[in-house]
Lab assay of single mutants.
Amino acid sequence: DEVEIEDFQYDEDSETYFYPCPCGDNFSITKEDLENGEDVATCPSCSLIIKVIYD
């Protein structure tokens, strides 16, 4: 799936974006990952991944 970065929750302390996963955990991707060109957020509890859409 693809999710807009605006739909993520941002945690300023950890500089990490979170998005709810269907399994009950959260996908996460850090601001640093995005700045380095990464665009895939992973869920630590299951095998799902999502593509992050940002400009």
Rank of each mutant, 00 (worst) to 15 (best):
D1C: 15
D1I: 14
D1S: 15
E2I: 15
V3R: 09
V3A: 05
E4C: 10
E4L: 04
E4A: 07
E4W: 04
E4I: 15
I5L: 10
I5P: 01
I5W: 03
I5D: 00
E6V: 06
E6D: 15
D7K: 15
D7L: 13
F8E: 00
Q9L: 08
Q9S: 05
Y10E: 04
Y10A: 03
D11I: 07
D11K: 15
D11V: 12
D13C: 06
D13I: 13
D13L: 05
S14F: 05
S14K: 13
E15L: 04
E15P: 01
E15H: 09
E15R: 14
T16S: 14
T16Y: 13
Y17A: 03
Y17L: 02
Y17T: 01
Y17D: 00
Y17E: 00
Y17S: 02
Y17G: 03
F18C: 06
F18N: 13
F18I: 02
F18M: 06
F18L: 11
Y19I: 04
Y19H: 11
P22N: 09
P22Y: 02
P22T: 10
C23V: 01
G24Y: 09
G24F: 02
G24M: 03
D25A: 11
D25S: 10
N26R: 13
N26M: 07
N26V: 06
F27S: 14
F27T: 14
F27P: 03
F27Y: 08
F27R: 12
F27D: 01
S28A: 07
S28C: 07
S28Q: 15
I29W: 09
K31M: 02
K31D: 02
K31H: 01
K31R: 02
E32F: 05
E32C: 11
E32S: 08
E32G: 09
E32P: 06
L34E: 14
L34H: 14
E35P: 03
E35I: 14
E35F: 08
G37P: 06
G37W: 04
E38N: 02
E38V: 04
D39L: 13
D39G: 12
V40G: 13
V40R: 12
A41N: 13
A41K: 03
A41S: 13
T42M: 02
P44T: 08
P44I: 03
P44E: 06
P44Y: 08
S45E: 11
C46W: 00
C46L: 00
S47Y: 14
S47I: 03
L48R: 11
I49T: 08
I49H: 11
I50H: 09
I50G: 02
K51L: 06
V52E: 00
V52H: 03
V52M: 11
I53R: 08
I53Y: 06
I53D: 04
Y54V: 13
Y54A: 09
D55V: 05
